[in-house]
Write a protein that binds this DNA or RNA. Structure first.
Lengths: 226, 226, 226, 226
DNA sequence: AATGAATGAGAGTTCATTCAT
DNA sequence: AATGAATGAACTCTCATTCAT
C-alpha cells in the first residue's frame, strides 16, 4: 500500500487543521479541474475559490502537481470507501459478482466526472504517484478476479481468463463515465446497469443460464442493494 | 458530416501548398502531442520540429487549438481509412462481426497512442469541434450496430440491445489503448485479441454456439485477414 | 565607536536570554551566509537550522538585514579579540610590525570566509551600519600606522606614507582571503606568510636591511609568536 | 580561451541586432547591478530601463544569470582592450613594469565600480562561467609575471617570487577599487598611483635604486603614457 | 508566402514579515 | 516568551500570438 508515497509534505503542523483545510482545497480544486481541466486551472484561481492566499495554499502542498495528486487520491479513496465490504458478503459467487458490479457501477456514476478526470490527467503525475493511484484500481481488479475465480472453482462460472474478465468488468463500468456523452442519449443509468450486467453474465455463466432471462439476476442484486 | 465545422481557415490560398504543409505540421504535432501531451507542447517546439517559422505556422492555422483539431482529425481519418470496406464484404454477419472487430483492434493497436490522446485531450476543443471528431466514432458504432442487427435478424445473434453491444465492442477494443499499461503485463496483443473476441461472441451468440470452442471463430477471422 | 549604531532593537527584554539566543542565531546564520551567500539564504532556512521559530526569530531581530549586521559584527569582533594586545608589546617597531602582520594574517586565515563575506555583502547594509563595521577595520589600519610611524621616528623604517603603508599591510593580508582561489594553487599559507612579510619589509626597511636575508626577520616573528 | 563557454544562446538570429541590443541590455544592467547589486535588481527593472519587454529580453539571454555573465564579460573585455599592447613595447623591464602597472591602475580607476562588482557577485555564476571570467584575470597576472621574470633575468629586479609579486601588483591596483571608500579620504588617484608605484618598485629593485627618489621612475612612465 | 523580432498577459513559486493566540 | 498560520508583494520565466518587413 506504499504509505510513504501517499505522503505530501506540508508546512502546516497541526494535523487537524491540515486535514480540514486540505479537504477544502481539494474540494475546490476538484471542481475546477473537472470543469476546466488541470492545465487550464491556475493556482491563483484555486486560491481565489477557496479562501486561501496563494502563499497560504503552498503551506498545504508543495506544488500544483501535489494538488492533482490529492484530488486523484480523494477520488480513489472515496471510491474505495464506497466499495466497502461488498465483496466480503455471501458465499454465492454469482450473486456476489452481480452485486459487486452493480454497486461499483453506482459508484462510478456517483464519481462519473472524477473517473473521467483520472483517465485524463493521470499522466501529468510522476510515475511513482501514478503507481500509487493505480494500485487502488488494481485492487478492484483483484477483488473481481477473486470472485470470478471462486465462481469458476464452484463450477458456477465458465473457465474464462479471470484476469481479463475482471478488467473487462471494471472497464465496462468505467464506460458509463468515459462514454457518457454517447450513452446518455440512448439509455438511463438503470438501463445501462441492467444491460451491462446481462452482457457480463452471458460471458461468465455456462450456456444454459446465460441465455435465460436476466430479470432473475437483477432481482438478486436489487434485493441486496443498499 | 458537417463539412463546415471541419474547415479551418488559413491565410495561405494555394490549396496544394496548404494541404502539403499542413500535413507536415500535423505529423510533427502528433508526435509531440503523443510524447508530451497537448499542454506541455509549445507552439515554438512544434515550429522548431518542422520547417516552420512560428509566424508561418500561423498562416496555416488560427490557433494552437486548431492544431489539436487537425491532429485529432488525422487520427480519426486514418482510423477510418484503415477500416475501409471491412464492413461491406460478405453476407455472414458472424464472420463479418469477428473480422471487423479484429481488424478494428489491429487499427487501435496501430494507433494506440493516438486513441489515448483523443480520450485525453478531446475536451480542450470547443464542443462543435468535439462533435465533429466524435461523429467519426459514432460512425464506427453504427457500422457495428448494423452488423449486429443483421445478425439478430438472421437469428445468428441473440436479440441483445444492439446499440450498447456495438458500443461495448468499440470500447473493448479501445481498452487495448487505455489499459495498455496494465494489460501488457498479462498478455500479448494477439492473446488479447483472441480472448476479447471470445468474450464478445459469448454475449452475442446463442447458447449452443457461444460455449463451443473459439478456435473456429478465430479461424474465420484469420482466413479473411489482410 | 558609535555605540548607538551598534544597537539592534529586540522584543526580548531579558538581556541574558537575548545575548545567548542571538549568539545561537548568529552562529547558524554565519554558517549559512558563508555557504550560500546572504541573498540565497532565507529566513526560514535560518530558523530551521537553529531552534527558532520564524516568528520567534523576529523577537531578537528586526529584519533579515539585522542578522547580516550581527554576523558582520561578530566576525569583526572576533577578529578584534584575536588581535588582542599584539600591538602593545615591545618597543622594537620592526619586530612589532612583523609580529602584528603575521598574527593578523593568521587571523585572516582563520576567518578567511568571513572576511570574504564582509567584502561581498557589506553593501547590503545601510551606510551607517557599514560605517560601524568599517570603523573596526580602520582601527586596524591605525594600529599598523602607529607602529610604522614609530619605526619611522626611530629611523628603523623609511619615511614612507604611513597611512597607505598601513592599508597595504592590511590589504595584502586580506589577499589570502580574496585571492585564495588563485593563491592556494601556488603556495601554502606559511609560504604566503613568509613571502608577504619579506615583500612588506622591503618597502619599509632602509636599503641595507631590506636586501638582507629574510630569515632573520621571520625568526623575530617566530620567537614572539603565541 | 574556452571560446565555447563564452557563448550564450539567444533566440534572436541576426548577429548585428543581437550584438547591438545585447550591448544596450548589458549597459543598463551594469548600471543597475552597480547601483543596487545583482540580487536587488529585478528582471523587470532591467527590462524597464532599456526599452525591452520582459519577454523580449529573454530573446537575448537565457536567464538572469546570463546577464550577470555578460556584464562581467564586458567589464573584463573592456579592461583587456584597454590594456592593449602595453606589455609588448620596449626592452627595459623596469620601464615596462612601471608603465604597465600605472596603465593598469588607470584602467582600474576607469572601471572602478565594475571591478568591485566582479569581486562581489562572481560567486553567483556557475563555476565554469567563473572560470571563464577569472582566466582573463590570470592572463593579467601572467603578463606582469613575464615582465618581472624578464627583469630578474636581466638583473634589474631582485630574485623575488615572481608569481606572488605579479599577483600583488594586480591586487594593489584593485585596491583602488575595493578600498576606495577609505583611500579617497586620504589621497587622490594620482597620489595613490605614485605612492603605490614606489611601494612596488621598492620590492623589486635592488637596494641602491629602490631608495632613490621616485620622481625619476614616474617620469619614465609619464613620458610613455598614452 | 515567409520570417525575425516583439509583446501582454500570466504562469508557478517564494519571500520577508506579521498576526492571533 | 513563544509559535503556528497567514499574507501581500514580488520573483523569474514562458506562453500563444502578432507586427513589420
Amino acid at each position: 500500500m506504499s504509505e510513504k508515497s501517499r505522503h505530501i509534505p506540508a508546512t502546516v503542523k497541526n494535523p487537524g487543521v491540515l486535514a480540514q483545510r486540505r479537504a477544502e482545497l481539494v474540494d475546490v480544486a476538484t471542481q475546477l479541474f473537472l470543469r476546466n481541466g488541470f492545465h487550464k486551472t491556475s493556482i491563483r484561481e484555486i486560491a481565489r475559490a477557496c479562501s486561501f492566499n496563494v502563499a497560504s495554499l503552498y503551506m498545504y502542498v508543495t506544488s500544483k502537481e501535489d494538488i492533482l495528486f490529492l484530488v486523484a487520491q480523494r477520488i480513489v479513496d472515496e471510491k474505495a470507501a464506497s466499495l466497502g465490504d461488498i465483496f466480503s458478503e455471501g458465499d454465492d459467487p454469482v450473486a456476489a459478482y452481480i452485486l459487486a458490479f452493480q454497486r461499483y457501477c453506482r459508484i462510478i456514476d456517483k464519481y462519473r466526472q472524477g473517473v473521467k478526470l483520472l483517465y485524463r490527467e493521470m499522466d501529468v503525475l510522476p510515475s511513482d504517484r501514478q503507481t500509487t493511484i493505480l494500485e487502488s484500481e488494481i485492487a478492484v481488479h483483484e477483488l473481481f478476479r477473486e470472485i470470478i475465480d471462486h465462481g469458476i472453482q464452484d463450477g458456477r462460472f465458465r473457465p474464462v481468463n479471470s484476469g481479463l474478465a475482471a478488467q473487462n468488468t471494471v472497464f465496462l463500468a468505467h464506460m458509463w463515465s468515459l462514454k457518457h456523452w454517447s450513452l446518455k442519449r440512448e439509455m438511463t443509468f438503470e438501463e445501462f446497469l441492467e444491460a451491462q450486467t446481462a452482457f457480463l453474465m452471458s460471458t461468465l455463466l455456462p450456456k444454459d443460464l446465460a441465455t435465460g432471462p436476466n430479470t432473475r439476476l437483477n432481482k438478486i442484486a436489487s434485493t441486496k442493494r443498499a
